[in-house]
Nucleic acid binder design. Structure first.
Lengths: 223, 223
DNA sequence: CATGGCTTGTGAAGAATTTCACAAGAACGC
DNA sequence: GCGTTCTTGTGAAATTCTTCACAAGCCATG
């Protein structure tokens, strides 16, 4: 680590959009590394990531100086720095709550394991499901959740339950001490401020597309 | 339709964040209607939707006046207006490309059909898959995509293919005349400006959670 | 070791978005 | 009918986010 020591604790508040882009850059860098690139400039990083070079440099500047003027960024170095910033240097224990179609699909999602997110438990309230294995992980009864959590101390709960149960499950998960929730249910969750929630709402994205299509057809320019 | 006729063609450009919130309000309104509420104020709508009342009113004001001072918004009326704005008054034909775990799970996702998104075709390049049925829809060969699209004129393509094929598939989908893509592959897509892409990147959301967790532990306030 | 061509890092400017705050309208009780 | 209470719609202010533009640094070349 020759350069700035990738200090991952800036005083300022970092915008969520910035953090999202950092993840994106990481993905672009992976591709670049796979193609054998040693070095990458903010211009190229921006093109592949769908943003602007100034944005890339600004985003990175919040966390330190990672580039070399006249050269660009060392790919391997920047990967390490970004992983560090994003907290990907360690393993995160994940509970998946809801073993329906989406929950089951997520268990074997490679994007999770590749970044250190390990599914340690899957929960469902259907007794028919309990005991079965999904990709090497056993489905457990919802009744066990609090008990297991006290022992395993999971970091993140992924909620793939029906919308009408989402809030109740979230409450339990929070009470069990989990402080990060990824919510796939199409319902807004209310949690204490000490808990972070990210919602992935597919219906919402689709509706955004529908809006774009009707706007487009109505003749408004996209921007 | 007693009030402002829900004119869905404002001259100004509407921020994507606004459109997302409109979808969210629609969801809150559904719940409200289910609870038998006739009327809802911007304050309540905001609380349930996780935003502020001023934001709600501002968002709606871009499209017209839907409320009554002193009363709030008529739930049923606002639902209709929002559906209208978002282009949910019609049926949208959806192709799902990639019949892996996630693609298969999405076929039967209720959030799609509930809002008028109808899956008319599923595509996969695995010959073992082709011909099987998923929730009443047959899996077709990738080779057919362009041919079928010319006939069925699908509106939206949902991409659930591996990241390394995402761009190539996107190119085909665009060439086939589809102008809206929902991308589940963890790879940024490059498409002509006439095509709208929404990406749902679950790894990215998880990384956002990991970031929040390390920040939290490092003692920074969430906001 | 000087020169030229690139590219970063970053204040400052600009644009976009959110919040404030209040006038105006609607309903209700008396 | 009048006053009180509630709530919308919206300019203006505040804040947040993005883009600009350029000095400073690095590398290669001769």
């Amino acid at each position: 680590m020759p350069n700035t020591p990738a200090l991952p604790s800036p005083e300022k508040h970092i915008a969520e959009s910035t953090v999202r882009r950092l993840s994106l850059y990481l993905r672009v860098l992976d591709q670049a590394a796979a193609r054998g690139l040693q070095t990458i400039s903010s211009v190229v990083l921006a093109e592949e990531g769908g943003t602007t070079s100034a944005q890339v440099r600004k985003d990175l500047s919040f966390f330190g100086s990672f580039g070399k003027r006249g050269r660009g960024y060392d790919v391997a170095e920047l990967v390490t720095a970004l992983q560090d910033i994003l907290g990907l240097g360690r393993e995160w224990k994940v509970y998946i709550v809801g073993a329906g179609k989406i929950g089951s699909a997520l268990v074997s999602y490679r994007g999770f394991s590749q970044r250190g997110f390990r599914v340690v438990g899957i929960y469902d309230n259907n007794p028919q499901m309990v005991g079965r294995m999904l990709d090497g992980v056993g489905i457990r009864s919802m009744a066990q959740l609090e008990h297991d959590a006290a022992r395993e101390l999971p970091d993140i709960a992924v909620l793939t339950v029906p919308a009408e149960h989402a809030q109740a499950v979230a409450d339990r998960v929070v009470a069990a001490g989990i402080r990060a929730i990824m919510n796939f249910a199409p319902a807004p969750l209310h949690v204490p401020p000490s808990v972070t929630v990210k919602s992935v709402n597919m219906a919402l994205e689709l509706e955004g597309l529908a809006y774009a299509l009707v706007r487009r057809d109505a003749g408004e320019p996209p921007r």
